[in-house]
Design a protein around this nucleic acid. Structure first.
Lengths: 326, 326
DNA sequence: TTGTAAGCGTTATCAC
DNA sequence: GTGATAACGCTTACAA
């Protein structure tokens, strides 16, 4: 079949090419009757605008880029997967498509920005895994490239739009749940201080304990993420606790293993509600990833229109109850 | 900074725009000395071709589309994630970028093809989750849209390029491993007949048994994928077996649970080497996903150049040994 | 309200 | 081997 362009549509509707373009971009400027005629021609011919041609004129590609990370320890990798799906889903109705890229570190990622921006005219970026001293955000901000982050700007000023999950609220809810079940000696397994996410998760636990009038001192351990480190730390902690809140499902899994080995009854709650949690019946804090992705697109739309100012959104996680802490 | 186009480069190198274009696209036609001069100008100015402009002329976007599926039961979802990462990684050096889309069924996916093809001029598609009576491949083939599938064309003729993992070889290796460990009553937990992948996995198990002179009749069960169905089927099968090969990690997980409940010692091997397998120490058959992704890009490059004919690649999975079948 | 004309950056064709 | 010219499909002044 021959290519359908704006000219084909114009012919069929008996108007000029310009009028068709107006119907597409500024419909309010075209008389209703003409507009309808053009719209009919568009659907009848199955016309679709050529992004390339439009992009040449406008400099906008209607493309959003996201980095796809390697499935790290494998357990938490699925978090990004769900986020990506949500992002792609939410972007489509807004007229945007999602493009992937990979990078091994922040500098490599910035090099990719340059290519993506100059060669493909990317409209915006969605950054994940924000961290302290993140050079990516400042690079993008300096060049006035639109972006939002999933994860707040740890330590840096709130000058851009971001969406994040209230990590502290998640562990706080988990701890309260354990308190409600009668547990009084509740420990925490987390990561070394310094990672914003990890610190927030620890804070939530400490807050819940202190508002229940219970001490938290000495009841937490900081280790690298992973099942084995989790098991080691749990073994150390188990004699003094009867419940554990963990900063990740990996750590929680380690805790479960240690508890089984020591034959010590201990409630355990993980974080991220990954497939593993579902598989082994681990109670876990679940992040609203689809919602987060949709909000990222919302904020991005605001940034791209320059209509809205920068905004920050903190979403609430929920507790998914399973056997390890029913 | 002002926009750098081939005109800027041409000025700087003291040649015409066309010569710059020649250096980019058909370097062998340009005299070495001129070529070098142009190349220097390109790097000095940090010039990059505008994909949009190139695309307008050539009709090719250097974009490849892949569908991102929702994390189904959550356990096997990470398979696609790893594949996607590999695909993005392999596409970049070949000069291609990966675009995502979602779809709820085959028809919806075809509607998306239309949009992606006409609006974005997509160069090719990578299809995953091929199945019997797949309408997507015929739709694309009819319109001569380049594509490769990760998964062979079940039931359909081999008219396009595809990459697949030898599922039968995976379960056969798993079964042989169990035979080598002295097991003689080896059962199989799989899906109802009809899914190509599922049937192949069952075949591998049956083949290994029969070539060891052992009967397989009555030692398999077909259920829906999932932990609970797996546990139910395993409970039924356990009295007659001391080892189980499973079509998925989910089923294997169910089998493990059933074995524990019945306090029946039973070796278990899963399929896909998902995060869960790693977490619970489940021996599992691992698909070479990164390799598969890279081969998909290779084949696609051939299809896009029209240089190579269609080819089919069957990759070998490997067995990852863990506690459940050491 | 509608039409005309120019130009976005590239590559293909064809002279030189 | 190199350079001029046209064309890809669209949008944005500006003119009618």
């Amino acid at each position: 079949m021959p290519k359908v362009t704006i000219a084909t549509v114009a012919d069929r509707a008996g108007v000029s090419r310009q009028t068709v373009s107006n119907v597409l971009n500024t419909p309010e400027v075209v008389r209703e009757e003409t507009r309808e005629r053009v719209r009919e021609a568009i659907t009848a011919l199955g016309y679709r605008v050529s992004q390339a041609a439009r992009q040449m004129r406008t400099g906008r590609s209607r493309l959003i880029a996201v980095r796809i990370e390697p499935a790290r320890d494998g357990i938490n990798g699925s978090v990004l997967d769900r986020f990506l799906h949500g992002l792609t889903d939410a972007a489509a109705p807004a007229g945007y498509r999602v493009m992937l890229y990979t990078a091994t570190d922040d500098d490599g990622e910035i090099a990719t920005y340059e290519d993506l921006l100059t060669a493909y005219d990317l409209d915006a970026f969605v950054l994940t895994s924000t961290h302290h001293g993140d050079v990516r955000t400042s690079w993008l901000a300096e060049r006035q490239v639109p972006f939002v982050t999933f994860g707040r700007p740890w330590g840096a000023p709130d000058t851009h739009s971001w969406v994040d999950v209230d990590n502290a609220a998640g562990t706080e809810a988990a701890t309260r749940h354990l308190l409600g079940s009668g547990h009084r000696r509740i420990g925490f397994l987390g990561w070394p201080a310094g990672s914003g996410v990890g610190d927030a998760r620890r804070d939530g636990w400490a807050t819940a304990l202190s508002s229940a009038g219970l001490p938290s001192a000495g009841l937490d351990r900081a280790v690298a993420d992973g099942i084995d480190p989790g098991a080691d730390a749990a073994r150390d902690l188990l004699p003094s606790v009867d419940a554990l809140v963990c900063a990740s499902d990996s750590l929680a899994l380690g805790a479960l293993r240690a508890a089984r080995e020591l034959d010590h009854r201990c409630a355990v709650i993980g974080f991220d509600d990954t497939a593993v949690a579902q598989a082994v019946g681990l109670t876990s804090v679940s992040q609203p990833l689809t919602e987060a992705a949709a909000r990222c697109i919302d904020l991005l739309a605001g940034v791209l229109d320059r209509s809205a100012e920068t905004r920050q959104l903190l979403l609430q996680p929920s507790l998914v109850l399973r056997q390890t802490a029913p």
